[in-house]
Design a protein around this nucleic acid. Structure first.
Length: 813
RNA sequence: GCCCAGGUGGCGAAACUGGUAGACGUACUACCUUGAGGUGGUAGCGCCCGCAAGGGCAUGCGGGUUCAAAUCCCGCCCUGGGCACCA
C-alpha cells in the first residue's frame, strides 16, 4: 500500500495549482462572481504563528466551496506593511524599512503558500509600494478637495515614547495602545478627516448589511448616536443676591421668580436626551472650557476661584482625570443664575469636570432625580433633588423654543502621524498660497531615503530633517515652499485595499470602474474582533466618500462581515514572544503536513470563538486523513478487480446492498451537513461529521467509487492536497477544484424507521422502533404494552401521554 | 459602573424550533499488530453505588414555567473582551 507522504503530495499539488493558475480570478467570466476577503496581514519580523492562518483557512474553505458551486472567485491577499514595529526595528538596526519589509513579506508569503490557501497571488498588493500608495495619496487629495481633510490646532494625544500623535481610538486607558506609555496632551496642528459628516449614514446603513449582530452593535456604540433636544436656558444676574436676602425654599428650589423678569445676560444651549424631565432640572452645568464662562467674567462674583478651577482641569491629562475614581468636582458660578424655560424658575449655574466640552453643547441641565451623575453631584454639593411628573418630550421641547437634534459620540479622525514609515501627506506649504495640494500628476510623493529614522522630540517627523526633500517649489506660484512632513496613520492603506485587488496594476486610476462594478461589493469579509470597530468604520467611511464622488458603485464596501476568535497558547493564555509559547506553523507542516494543520485548525473549536492551541490533539486530524487515504486505496484496488461488479456505479450491490445503502445514506446526510455547516462557519462540526463518515466507510464491506468521490469533493476545501491526490488516483484528469459540489438526495436521507424514546414521568426508561408514518394510536398502544413500561406503571393508569413525532413518547402517571 | 461574548467530562467541544446531555477529537486504560518504537488498529471511559442487571446524581449557583429545561423566565456568582462621566 502506498504510504501517505504529505511532503511529496503537498509539494506536487502546490506546484500544479501555481502552474495552472487554478486560483486566478477571471475578470471576464460567465460565472457569477464571488469576492471573499480576509484582513491582509501586517508582515511582522517574527513570521507567521499558528493563529494567522485560521481566518485564511476559514475563508479558503468558503472560497473553494464557491468555486465548486460554479462561482468565479476572487480571494486575494496582500500586505499591510506600513507601521511602527518595522520602523522601530529600522531605528534599532539602522536598516532600511523597505529592506526589512521585503524580507518579512518573503517569509510570510513562503509560509502562507506552504498551507495551500487558494489565494490569487497574481493580485498581491503591498501598502508600502509607491504604486499602491500613490492611490492612497490620491484619495487623500479627493478628501482635501471636498473639504473633508482639514488642518486644525487641537490638543492631541501624544505618545512620548513613540513620539507621535495618536487618534483617540489608539489611546487605551490613557496609554498608548502600542507601547503602553501614558499619553500626554499636546496642542498641535493636525490633519483631520471629517468622519463625523458621515456619522448618520455610517449608523443608518448598517441596516442594509449582513454583519454579525455584535459587530453592528460595536459599530453603533462607537458612532454613539443619540436623539435629544437642544434647549436654551437664559442666564441672568442673581436676583436673590441683588435684590433680596430671602432664602429660597430649600426643598422646592423656588427662587424669587415671581417678580419681574431680569433681562438675560446671555444664554446657555444645553443638550438633553430627556427633555421630558425638564421640570426636575434643578441646576445647570457648563463644561470648564465653555466659552460663556469667559464672557460672563464680570458678572461672576467668585471669578478667581472659577479661573483657578478651569486652569486645573485644563492641565490635567486624561489619566489624571480618570484616575480620580470619577469623584466629580465643580464650582458654582456665583452672581448668575439660569432660568429654566419650562417653569421660569431660577436655578444655579455650575462648572464641573463631569461635563465634556467635546460632546453635545458642552452644557447640560442637571436632573438629579433622573440622572445618576447629576444625583452624585447634587448630593455632594447639597443641590436640590426634586421629583416632578414627566411631560411629553416633543411638546415641551417645542414649548420652550428648543429643537430636536441628533448627536454623536464619534469625533473627527486625527489623520497625522509624526513618523517616517507611512504615506507622506501630499501637500505643500507655500508662504504665499498657504496649503497647496500636490498636483495629481506628481503622485506618488515617495518617501525619501533617510539615514536616521529616529523621530524627534519636537514632534516633527524624521522627514523634516531632509531639507532636500522638504524644500520644494509651490505648484501654484512656483515660489519657495515646504513639503508636509506628517505621514498618514496605518489605517489609511487598509481603508481601501479591497478595491485595489480588483485591478491591482492599474496605472491610470485606483481601480477600473467596470471591474469595480463587476467585483464589488465584497461578498464576505472575515476578520478579527479587534478590527470590528475601527478599521471597519474607517473603511466604510472612505468607501462612502468614494461612492459620493461616483468612484465606486456601491454605498457599502462589505455585504457580509464575520469575525473569528484568536488562537491562544496552550492553557488559554495569549500567544506571545515574551511568554515563549508561540507555535510556528512551519514545524506542524513539516511533521504532519498542511492538510493536517488545516483540518486541525478548523476542527479545534467554534470558528468565532477563541480557542487554546493543543499540539497533542493535532494527531486526531492526521489520523482522520490517513483513514481517508486507506479508504481511497481500497476503492482504488476494488476498481482494478471489478469483476465482482460491486464497485461500478449504478450496479446494485447484490449481497452487499445493505452496507451500500447505509453508507450512501450517511454520505448524503454528511453532504447536507457539511454544505450547511460551512455556510454558518461551523467548520468544526462539518469535520466531525466527515470523521463519522470516514469511520463508517472504512467499516463497510464496499464503498462505491461514486460515493467516495463525493466524499473527496466535500473534503477538498479542508484538505485540498490529499483530496486532489486521491481524486487523480481515481482516474480523474481534471482538478477536483473544477468539479461540481455534490448535492444530496432528499429521499435518501429520510429514514423509514426511527428509534423513539419512551419516557415515564419525563425519564427515559425504554426505546421503541417505529415506522416514520406509524400513527399515534398504534405507537401509544405498543408503548403501553411494553414490558418495561408495564413494570413502571405497576397497574396504575396513565394520566396523560405526550407524543412528539418521531422523537419520544412520555407517559405521565 | 455600562455593553458584548461565554460558563457542559481530565482537556477542546456537540446538542435542530424546549424532546436520548456529552456526538467528534484528544488524553487515559486494556488488548491487537510489531524484533522494538508509535504519527498503526480495536474496545472501554461524566460522577456515585453495584460483579452485573439496574439505580441514583449531573450542563456555574438559587428559584420559576412545563408532561419535559444546557436551551425559556426571574435573581445572583464567575471568566474573557470592549467602553469609560457622551447628558
Amino acid at each position: 500500500m502506498k504510504e501517505y507522504d504529505h511532503k511529496k503530495i503537498e509539494k506536487k499539488w502546490q506546484i500544479f495549482w501555481e502552474k495552472n493558475g487554478t486560483y486566478h480570478a477571471q475578470n471576464k467570466s460567465k460565472k457569477p462572481k464571488y469576492y471573499s476577503l480576509i484582513e491582509f496581514p501586517y508582515p511582522s519580523g517574527d513570521g507567521l504563528h499558528v493563529g494567522h492562518p485560521r481566518p485564511y483557512i476559514g475563508m479558503d474553505v468558503i472560497s473553494r466551496k464557491r468555486r465548486l458551486e460554479g462561482c468565479n472567485v476572487l480571494y486575494p491577499i496582500g500586505w499591510d506593511a506600513f507601521g511602527l514595529p518595522t520602523e522601530n526595528f529600522a531605528i534599532k538596526t539602522g536598516k532600511d524599512p523597505r529592506v526589512v519589509t521585503k524580507k518579512n513579506t518573503d517569509t510570510f508569503r513562503r509560509q502562507i503558500k506552504s498551507l495551500g490557501v487558494s489565494f490569487d497571488w497574481s493580485r498581491e498588493i503591498n501598502t508600502t509600494d509607491p504604486k499602491y500608495y500613490k492611490w492612497t495619496q490620491w484619495i487623500f487629495l479627493q478628501f482635501l478637495k471636498k473639504g473633508l481633510a482639514y488642518k486644525a490646532k487641537i490638543a492631541i494625544n501624544w505618545c512620548p515614547k513613540d513620539k507621535t500623535g495618536l487618534a483617540n481610538e489608539e489611546v487605551v486607558g490613557g496609554c498608548c495602545e502600542r507601547c503602553g506609555t501614558p499619553v500626554e496632551k499636546r496642542e498641535k496642528e493636525q490633519w483631520m478627516l471629517a468622519i463625523t459628516k458621515y456619522a448618520e449614514r455610517l449608523d443608518k446603513d448598517l441596516d442594509d448589511v449582513d454583519y454579525l449582530p455584535q459587530i453592528k452593535l460595536s459599530q453603533r456604540n462607537w458612532i454613539g448616536r443619540s436623539e435629544g433636544a437642544e434647549i436654551d436656558f437664559n442666564i441672568v444676574a442673581n436676583r436673590a443676591e441683588t435684590f433680596s436676602k430671602t432664602a429660597p425654599s430649600e426643598t422646592e428650589g423656588h427662587g424669587t421668580h415671581t417678580f419681574s423678569k431680569n433681562s438675560p445676560l446671555g444664554f446657555a444651549k444645553v443638550f438633553t436626551t430627556r427633555p421630558d424631565t425638564i421640570f426636575g432640572a434643578t441646576y445647570l452645568v457648563l463644561a470648564p472650557e465653555h466659552e460663556l464662562i469667559q464672557k460672563l467674567k464680570k458678572q461672576i462674583k467668585n471669578w478667581s476661584e472659577v479661573e483657578k478651577y478651569v486652569n486645573e482641569i485644563k492641565n490635567k491629562t486624561d489619566i489624571e482625570r480618570t484616575a480620580e475614581d470619577k469623584t466629580k468636582t465643580g464650582v458654582e458660578l456665583k452672581g448668575i443664575k439660569a432660568i429654566n424655560p419650562a417653569n421660569e424658575e431660577e436655578i444655579s449655574v455650575w462648572i464641573a469636570d463631569y461635563v465634556l466640552a467635546t460632546y453635545g453643547t458642552g452644557a447640560i441641565m442637571a436632573v438629579p432625580e433622573h440622572d445618576e451623575r447629576d444625583r452624585d453631584f447634587a448630593t455632594k454639593y447639597s443641590l436640590p433633588i426634586i421629583n416632578k411628573p414627566l411631560v411629553d418630550a416633543r411638546e415641551i421641547t417645542k414649548k420652550v423654543g428648543g429643537k430636536m437634534v441628533t448627536k454623536f459620540k464619534l469625533r473627527d479622525w486625527v489623520f497625522s502621524r509624526q513618523r517616517y514609515w507611512g504615506e507622506p501627506i501630499p501637500v505643500v506649504h507655500c508662504e504665499k498660497c498657504g496649503i497647496v495640494p500636490v498636483p495629481e500628476k506628481d503622485l506618488p510623493i515617495e518617501l525619501p531615503k533617510v539615514k536616521n529614522y529616529q523621530p524627534t522630540d519636537s514632534g516633527e517627523s524624521p522627514l523634516a530633517n531632509i531639507s532636500k526633500w522638504v524644500n520644494t517649489k509651490c505648484p501654484k506660484c512656483k515660489g519657495v515652499a515646504k513639503r508636509e512632513t506628517d505621514t498618514m496613520p496605518n489605517w489609511a492603506g487598509s481603508s481601501w485595499y479591497y478595491l485595489r485587488y480588483v485591478d491591482p496594476k492599474n496605472k491610470k486610476i485606483f481601480a477600473d470602474k467596470k471591474l469595480l462594478k463587476y467585483w464589488t461589493p465584497v461578498d464576505w469579509y472575515n476578520g478579527g474582533n479587534e478590527h470590528t470597530t475601527l478599521h471597519l468604520l474607517y473603511s466604510r467611511f472612505w468607501h462612502k466618500f468614494l461612492y459620493d464622488q461616483g468612484l465606486v458603485p456601491t454605498a457599502e464596501p462589505y455585504k457580509k462581515r464575520t469575525a473569528h476568535g484568536m488562537i491562544l497558547g496552550e492553557g488559554g493564555v495569549k500567544m506571545s514572544k515574551s511568554l515563549g509559547n508561540v507555535i510556528n506553523p512551519d514545524e506542524i507542516v513539516k511533521t504532519y503536513g498542511a492538510d493536517t494543520l488545516r483540518v486541525y485548525e478548523m476542527f479545534i473549536g467554534p470558528f468565532s470563538q477563541s480557542v487554546a492551541w493543543s499540539t497533542e490533539s493535532i494527531i486526531g486530524a492526521r489520523r482522520f486523513i490517513e483513514k481517508v487515504w486507506r479508504i481511497g486505496f481500497r476503492v482504488q484496488v476494488s476498481k482494478q478487480k471489478n469483476s465482482s461488479g460491486l464497485t461500478l456505479p449504478g450496479v446494485p450491490g447484490g449481497t452487499h446492498t445493505v452496507q451500500n445503502s447505509s453508507v450512501s445514506k450517511l454520505l448524503n446526510k454528511t453532504i447536507k451537513k457539511v454544505s450547511e455547516d460551512i455556510e454558518d462557519t461551523h467548520f468544526n462540526t462539518a469535520i466531525s461529521s466527515m470523521m463519522i463518515l470516514a469511520t463508517e466507510m472504512e467499516k463497510a464491506e464496499i464503498v462505491r467509487r461514486e460515493d467516495y468521490k463525493k466524499f473527496l469533493q466535500i473534503l477538498s476545501p479542508f484538505a485540498p492536497h490529499v483530496a486532489e491526490e486521491l481524486w487523480s488516483t481515481l482516474g480523474e484528469k481534471k482538478s477536483v477544484n473544477v468539479s461540481i459540489w455534490p448535492t444530496w438526495d432528499k429521499k435518501l436521507i429520510e429514514d423509514e424507521e426511527v428509534k423513539i424514546m419512551i419516557q415515564i414521568n419525563g425519564k427515559v426508561r425504554a426505546e421503541l422502533m417505529i415506522n416514520v408514518d406509524e400513527n399515534e394510536e398504534s405507537i401509544k398502544r405498543r408503548t403501553l404494552s411494553d414490558e418495561v413500561v408495564m413494570k413502571y406503571l405497576e397497574g396504575r393508569e396513565a394520566k396523560r401521554i405526550v407524543y412528539v413525532k418521531n422523537r419520544l413518547i412520555n407517559v405521565v402517571v
